[in-house]
């Protein structure tokens, strides 16, 4: 039945090369080149100048000058990142906050995705629309709106107090809890959508087969549904975790002064201290930290595609 697929012939026409070249060219121009610029700045020194670092490459000064400015580059800023504990604490705190919020997002998002996938087929487009709907409002405004909800005299406290559940307003805004709420709220669709896709594809007869073989439905969830939705879980978690690590807006608006996240540290370094080289170094290290999960993610995606194919 399953014939081995003959690999396409190795020879490619010029046209197909051109087609492949377009995305690579795009990536090189808009990702690789900017990264190299940032990387170069991270090796430079702060200076009171425009731009605020040295050396600045001056291509008109000739080859000799270029080589001289190359020799001025150093890893000094990276050494600095290890000397001040602010940086590694920020990185660690970011990763922890991102990991915890990813986990909470999963706990909230799985039942949503599951419910959507099990709902009558006629409802699904509407439910899907409702998940996507918040994207139609600016991210910034949506996060801002949470201030009104979470602040001491905000909607949440008013509601809880009018219900008599609390007598004193809860301090939620400007704490890490507010950051968790903000991240879970903002990134929920990124988890729900891939998870929904993998749950919806799940063949219902597998659950019937499990039940037929003596497995009650609640056990069938752990033995069949969950393992088979794992690709969706992993994809969704990465889509939440990766941007959450570098998140700036949410900790800035909802977090307190002691909420340490690398996005905020970077902002302060760049705009308040105007230290482009150090903030570039921070950005490069952040990228390296994220590259590991991204590679894992891509490997996993590839495996999934191979299995499906």
């Amino acid at each position: 039945m399953d014939e081995p697929v003959t690999p396409p012939s190795k020879k490619r026409s010029l046209g197909s090369w051109a087609l492949i070249a377009v995305p690579y060219f795009w990536l090189a121009l808009f990702f690789l080149v900017p990264f190299l610029i940032v990387f170069k700045i991270s090796l430079s020194q702060i200076a009171v100048a425009i731009p605020p670092y040295t050396p600045a490459f001056d291509l008109s000064a000739g080859w000799q000058a270029f080589r001289e400015s190359l020799s001025e580059l150093s890893l000094e800023n990276y050494v600095w990142l290890t000397e001040d504990d602010l940086y590694w604490k920020s990185y660690l705190s970011s990763v922890i906050i991102a990991a915890v919020s990813t986990f909470i997002t999963l706990l909230v998002g799985y039942p949503i995705a599951y419910g959507m996938a099990r709902s009558p087929a006629a409802w699904r487009p509407t439910l899907l629309m409702l998940v996507i709907l918040p994207f139609w409002t600016s991210f910034l405004i949506r996060v801002y709106a949470w201030i009104g909800i979470l602040k001491n005299e905000g909607l949440l406290n008013q509601l809880l107090m009018s219900l008599g559940l609390i007598s004193e307003p809860l301090t939620i805004l400007n704490t890490n809890i507010a950051v968790y709420i903000g991240i879970v709220y903002s990134y929920l669709p990124f988890l729900v959508l891939p998870l929904y896709a993998s749950l919806e594809r799940l063949d219902g007869s597998l659950l019937e087969a499990a039940e037929d073989l003596g497995c009650p439905p609640w056990q069938a969830f752990w033995k069949i549904t969950l393992p088979l939705s794992l690709p969706g879980v992993i994809a969704g978690c990465f889509l939440v975790f990766i941007p959450a690590v570098g998140e700036f807006v949410i900790p800035d608006l909802l977090g307190g002064s002691n909420t340490l996240m690398i996005g905020k540290t970077l902002w302060v370094e760049f705009f308040n201290n105007r230290d482009w080289p150090v903030s570039s170094a921070v950005a490069v290290i952040l990228l390296l930290i994220l590259v590991v999960p991204i590679i894992l993610f891509q490997n996993q995606q590839q495996k999934m595609q191979e299995r499906d194919g």
């Binding site: 063949d203 007869s205 597998l206 019937e208 087969a209 499990a210 039940e211 037929d212 073989l213 003596g214 497995c215 009650p216 439905p217 069949i224």
Partner: peptide
């Protein structure tokens, strides 16, 4: 179904 003493072979096979 999970307590019935019958087993079924599904049309789609429904292999895990």
């Amino acid at each position: 179904p999970f307590r019935r003493p019958s087993n079924m072979m599904f049309q789609s096979y429904a292999l895990f």
